[in-house]
Design a protein around this nucleic acid. Structure first.
Length: 668
DNA sequence: CAGTGAGCGAGCTTCCGCTTGACTT
């Protein structure tokens, strides 16, 4: 018997089918060894020697694998062909004490590819393993050295890391841009012209042959003055430009683009999308859902061709290969339907699962289709020193849009020729204001991180959860991210005192060095040393330099009701609170009541409801006289009362409903 | 994932990346 070990149980099931009876395929369920959770686990005196432990969760897996490996005549490690996959293989060989592990990698889960791969096993690539170790150790040092610094200088329980701190930084910086932003008024001038009893729209575009800048018309007066000038001018067509324009289809999904589209189309949080994708993957509907690759297997390309040709005709099909921009560690395919001929409507899937499968199927199928073709026309109309421009487009050939519908405007312009005279019908000045850059959404922050190479497919969703759990950021009323006060304070400390680590380019620089290690041009120890030596020196200085009080404390003129000493305003993990200046002798604290709603408690009538947090960080609304009154709700009360039963109404998502479980009252 | 909590400073917290599961002393 030959034992094959892969990292995922679903992968093990599928490849077992392709291998003969003499193979047994088992799964490691991801990494099986790691640095210990409760200590640094890196010997800084001995060249960063890591101490690996087997977490309790992996204990059972390992003992099972050990048992089987003793029976096996040969052990083959078939984890993914990337840094992490190579490291898992190495950890397995160490933990299971495998003498001469055979390492096998394949890019595609087909009989042919797997058989080929098994005919050409190689040895473990220790350079690649060492690049992973360097990555792991650097992340551990950054996280486990910076976090305690924050505990000491700001508040306990805080955290910092190569990835999360940059994510928070982006959100804080965006907020600052918004605060700094001064909106500017500007005007555009829209006109309607008439030709053969057909009206069409046009926008003022030039004056004296010079393009009008966006902010050139600044006020109503200015706009009205131009309007007056425009009213009595003679107009004629000065140019007609007709051409074809094309729109190409999009590449198939990666984890990141799937998460973005699921948010943009359905407002699904990344975590939810991943849960649904996991189900679809386990049930065999889609390929692996944690990937940064846009590659497609030959099998899938042929299936797509067959499907498209049969369903829509040959002219709708077009072979397309996609390449990821930038660096990727391509161990998988893009996310695509496992069996492209299985159309969403025939899948038997429902609701959320249907919606996610549907966009995966459409994105994949359309990626192999022809471009859409538009007839577009641009018409310039001159009058005196002014010029208007009208643009129109009509769809000539839908191509991939047949499967992947997109909103676009179709406007048909009348058939005009140069020198045609025109009458102006209506002149409409329109007021606009420049807009501040928008707050990040789950979709746009993931996009931004990915573009900077920060985080991996398996971590985008957890990153978003972590920085919310730490209370660094929160969602506003439009489910967009804004930083909290503690988030801003922590970010500013990191940016001021540890600029190297929270540099947006830090990850990219690290990746370059890891590549050197992977290519054997550099050692992992040197990579760690080059980072750690200056980091250590800086950290020591900052422990001296930075004063906690300066960051968290503000004096107040309030007096402690318990002992009469002054109260101080302090900043904790969950925001500001008042505390007695005589702490620890007097432990009096008081909430700042910023989060109290203007909703009286329906139980005691004396208190008000206030937003609070459970120990796990989940928000609920409870009476501010707790513990004397224990009234609490999960959903945010609106302040109104139910028409049916008189209980409080609450906001649940978009819906307003009654908080009384036995009452079915709903609104909107 | 089906129930909610009073301490935030004083003590065991924290990283990133791979993968699913849930008795263990």
């Amino acid at each position: 018997m030959k034992l094959v070990i892969v990292e995922s149980p679903t992968k093990s099931k599928t490849i077992e089918k392709f291998l003969g009876k003499e193979y047994k395929v088992l799964s490691s369920f991801g990494h099986i060894r790691d640095l210990p959770k409760s200590s640094l686990g890196v010997d800084l005196e001995k060249d960063f020697q890591p101490k690996y432990v087997i977490p309790s969760k992996s204990r059972k897996v390992i003992s099972e694998l050990k048992k089987e490996s003793k029976k096996a005549g040969e052990i083959i490690l078939a984890t993914d062909e990337d840094r992490e996959g190579e490291a898992i293989a190495w950890h397995l060989s160490e933990a299971l004490k495998i003498e001469n592990p055979k390492r096998v990698v394949f890019h595609e889960i087909t009989k042919q590819a797997i058989e080929d791969a098994f005919r050409t096993p190689r040895e473990l690539d220790m350079n690649l393993v060492n690049a992973q170790q360097a990555r792991r150790i650097l992340d551990r040092i950054v996280g486990y050295k910076l976090s305690p610094f924050l505990w000491k200088k700001v508040a306990k329980g805080l955290s910092a890391g190569r990835v999360q701190s940059v994510a928070v930084r982006l959100i804080v910086e965006r907020e600052r841009e918004r605060e700094k932003f001064q909106k500017e008024e500007y005007w555009t001038i829209k006109a309607t012209f008439l030709k053969d009893n057909k009206e069409f729209e046009s926008f003022l575009s030039k004056k004296n042959g010079k393009s009008l800048e966006k902010l050139e018309i600044k006020s109503k007066e200015q706009a009205e003055k131009i309007k007056k000038e425009l009213e009595f001018l003679p107009y004629k067509v000065s140019s007609v430009e007709k051409k074809e324009s094309v729109k190409n289809p999009f590449p198939p999904f990666t984890t990141s683009s799937l998460q973005q589209e699921a948010w943009n189309k359905f407002r699904y949080p990344a975590k939810m999308t991943m849960k649904i994708a996991q189900d679809l993957y386990e049930k065999g509907f889609i390929t692996y859902h944690r990937t940064d690759s846009v590659n497609l297997s030959d099998f899938s390309l042929n299936s797509a061709k067959k499907f498209i040709t049969e369903a829509f005709g040959k002219n709708y099909h077009s072979f397309r290969k996609y390449k990821a921009k930038g660096k990727t560690q391509e161990a998988h395919e893009a996310i695509r339907p496992a069996y492209p001929e299985k159309r969403p409507e025939d899948s038997g899937l429902e609701k959320q699962h249907f919606k996610i499968y549907d966009i995966i199927w459409r994105k994949f199928m359309s990626s192999q289709m022809s471009q859409a073709i538009f007839d577009s026309v641009a018409i310039d109309i001159s009058g005196g020193e002014y010029e208007f421009r009208s643009t129109g487009q009509t769809l000539k050939f839908d191509g991939f849009l047949k499967v992947y519908p997109m909103k676009f405007e179709e406007t048909e312009l009348p058939d005009l020729k140069r020198e045609d005279p025109l009458n102006i019908q209506d002149i409409l000045p329109e007021q606009h204001f420049t807009q501040p850059p928008p707050r990040y959404t789950e979709a746009s922050i993931i996009k931004q991180l990915e573009e900077n190479g920060i985080g991996r497919p398996s971590t985008y969703a957890p990153i978003i959860s972590t920085i919310q759990a730490r209370n660094y950021i929160e969602k506003d009323e439009n489910r967009r991210f804004k930083p909290t006060e503690i988030g801003i304070v922590v970010n500013d400390i990191l940016v001021e005192h540890f600029p190297v680590v929270v540099d947006i380019k830090f990850t990219a620089k690290m990746e370059n060095e890891l590549d050197e290690v992977a290519e054997g041009k550099d050692t992992w120890e040197k990579t760690c040393r080059d980072f750690y030596e200056p980091f250590k020196k800086n950290l020591e200085e900052k422990y001296e330099e930075v004063e906690k009080k300066d960051i968290t404390d503000k004096p107040t003129d309030k007096i402690c009701p318990k002992c009469g000493s002054p109260l101080i305003e302090k900043l904790g993990r969950y925001g500001r609170f008042y505390a007695c200046s005589k702490f620890p002798e007097c432990k009096y604290t008081e909430s700042l009541k910023k989060d109290a709603l203007d909703v009286p408690c329906p139980k005691c009538g004396k208190g008000k409801l206030a937003g609070k947090r459970t120990k796990k960080g989940k928000i609920f609304y409870g009476c501010n006289r707790f513990p004397e009154c224990d009234f609490a709700l999960w959903d945010k009360p609106t302040g109104e009362k139910c028409e049916k039963c008189g209980s409080l109404l609450v906001q649940k998502g978009k819906q307003i409903k009654c908080s009384n479980k036995d009452c079915d009252f709903k609104k909107k």
